[in-house]
Amino acid sequence: VDYTGTLFPSGEQFDSSTRRGTFKFDLGRGAVIRGWDVGVATMRVGEKAEFILAPNYAYGARGAPPRIPPNSTLKFEVELHGFTQAQRLKAALKYKESGNALFKSSNWDDARAAYEKALGQLDDVWEETDEEKAEILAARIAVLSNLAAVLLKLKQYREAVARCNDALARDAKQSKVLYRLAQAQLGLGEFDAAVDTVQKGLEVRDGVG
């Protein structure tokens, strides 16, 4: 990333990558302040963002003397140049886990947002080895399936169908996805299609085809 950090709201600059070059760090490992780990994980490659971080997301009661006083609110202007594949996948799985927790607490809208962020992270992941391809495929299908489950709760059946079909286009033998697709089709009143989907699910379960 490239960045400029200032005290908020005074605007006094305390650091900038222009002084020492583009900054690289391991995302999600506590190598930087908490606000960076959280904020950068939400960004897309090429995006510019502005973070205003409360002290508990920055340097807290200790500050970072002499440039950053204790209990300082900080403002960062950040431009993201890229992620490593491992960082993207880790961020995606973190959003997936967050979505799962929100789903269990019946927080449908926030769960949906978390799953959509997970998909956004996976969109920027590239695959090189067969093992990496399998890992990313499994993550994407799981997120699509969970997102479909949320959409069913929200009664957004048409979008649930689209998410299920996206997953099934990648692996047609996903029985859980077929079950959710049938539920969405029933919600749309597409009874014949739902019966066909249930039949496909039973065939997958029984190892037919």
Rank of each mutant, 00 (worst) to 15 (best):
D2Q: 09
Y3C: 10
T4W: 02
T4M: 06
T6M: 01
G11C: 07
E12W: 01
Q13S: 07
D15F: 03
D15V: 01
D15E: 00
S17Y: 04
T18F: 03
G21R: 02
T22C: 08
T22D: 11
T22A: 14
K24N: 11
L27Q: 08
L27P: 12
G28L: 07
G28Y: 02
R29A: 02
G30S: 03
A31V: 00
A31T: 09
I33H: 07
R34D: 09
G39M: 05
G39N: 04
V40L: 06
A41Y: 13
A41C: 10
M43Y: 10
M43L: 13
R44I: 01
V45Y: 05
V45M: 08
V45T: 14
G46T: 03
E47Q: 15
K48A: 12
F51N: 04
F51R: 03
I52Y: 01
N56R: 12
Y57H: 12
A58V: 04
P65H: 06
P66L: 06
T73H: 09
K75W: 05
K75R: 15
E77R: 06
E77C: 03
L80Y: 01
L80M: 02
G82P: 10
T84M: 04
T84H: 07
Q87V: 02
L89H: 09
A92S: 13
L93N: 15
Y95N: 12
K96F: 11
E97T: 13
G99R: 03
G99P: 04
L102C: 02
K104V: 03
S105F: 11
S105Q: 15
S106P: 05
S106R: 14
N107K: 15
W108F: 07
A111V: 03
A113C: 04
A113Y: 08
A118C: 04
L119R: 00
Q121D: 13
Q121I: 04
L122A: 01
D123P: 03
D124F: 11
V125A: 12
T129I: 01
E132W: 05
A134T: 10
A134M: 06
L137R: 10
L137N: 07
R140T: 10
V143T: 14
N146Y: 02
L147V: 06
L147S: 06
V150I: 14
L151P: 08
K155C: 12
Y157T: 10
R158A: 15
R158L: 11
A160G: 04
A160Y: 10
A162D: 14
D166W: 09
A169E: 12
R170H: 00
R170G: 03
D171N: 14
D171S: 01
K176T: 07
L178Y: 09
Y179A: 13
R180F: 08
L186P: 12
G187A: 02
G187E: 02
G187V: 05
L188Y: 02
G189N: 01
E190M: 06
D192E: 14
D192I: 02
A193M: 07
D196L: 11
D196N: 06
T197P: 08
V198Q: 13
Q199P: 00
L202P: 11
V208L: 15
V208M: 08
G209W: 12
